[in-house]
Design a protein around this nucleic acid. Structure first.
Lengths: 157, 157
DNA sequence: GGATAACCGACTGCTTCGGTAGGATTTGGA
DNA sequence: TCCAAATCCTACCGAAGCAGTCGGTTATCC
């Protein structure tokens, strides 16, 4: 499995927040019941999202969470990365400052890494899919009234 | 991390096999030394590749492994899947008989799955990257400069 | 002050990862 | 014929991550 349920639950949580029209926060409890997910586990996940600056929180009674930005401006690479950590196909891949991918095997003074081409392509494929999808899309895609419609599930790139 | 070292080691092993010109098998020991990987761990990995029909084995002295097909006909989705198991972005994704992806949340009688669009795109991105890369490409990509080096990497044992 | 809800850290059972160990079986060659 | 080189197979191990649970603390509204 490429991703764990952290990404799954976290994305659902974000979608749930994105569904709310007003600006008032919704409590985690509400989200947990709507999505039928364990509240105490969601607490851990939402903490990651908050630290990543994707949601803001209001404490106390009638508090809760809301999106830190409009759903249109939230791309899913940021969400998934906040939840799962750095997204790389393989451990030896790091993001260098220039945004390039780098395979540590090459620094060993040992010849060209035979797997670099492959992982670079995979990395690119995943990144394009995640960065090319906004939260707003997911909200609209799953909004009630719209029945399961696989026609628009095409790739972005 | 999307994939574990099983994929990394296994792909390197395949590339090493693909580098061999003749049809005679090479031992795992040779591969392990060339790639500096633990032999006993490679045994586990090559077993998966063999069961998937990607390599064939010859037992006994002067035995070893060789590719079951020409490197051009081996696509990396088969290799990675043999090593890592079914490739899906999320646990709720299964390959249905018709080759479509299916999210189990939708069968719950509960509304449209809010994450399906995202995971479908990711799935597509990864699959395209893997299926669009052949072993032959990786072999060629990592070959240049090979005959020049003097280390233990020599192809002729 | 009480209810609500975010926050925080510790703990737990479970599975996978990465690797080791020890043996058995098969085969080629001296 | 017997040894060495290989594949093959099962079991085991420590470490880490996953998917939670639990208990408690702080902040806020009524």
């Amino acid at each position: 499995m490429l991703f764990s349920t952290k990404a799954e639950y976290g994305v659902r949580l974000m979608v749930e927040l994105g569904r709310q029209p007003g600006s008032r926060p919704i409590s985690l409890n509400t989200v947990a019941e709507a999505e039928r997910l364990p509240l105490s586990y969601l607490e851990h996940l939402v903490a990651k999202l908050r630290k990543a600056g994707l949601v803001t929180s209001t404490r106390g009674a009638h508090g809760g969470y809301r999106l830190a930005k409009p759903a249109k401006e939230i791309t899913m690479d940021a969400v998934v990365e906040a939840l799962e950590g750095q997204i790389a196909p393989m451990e030896c891949f790091h993001d260098s400052p220039e945004g390039k991918v780098l395979c540590s095997h090459e620094i060993d003074g040992y010849q060209t890494c035979s797997t670099k081409l492959l992982w670079t392509r995979v990395q690119s494929g995943v990144t394009k899919a995640l960065a090319g999808t906004t939260l707003a899309e997911l909200v609209e895609f799953s909004s009630p009234g719209r029945e399961a419609d696989t026609a628009t599930v095409g790739s972005t790139a």
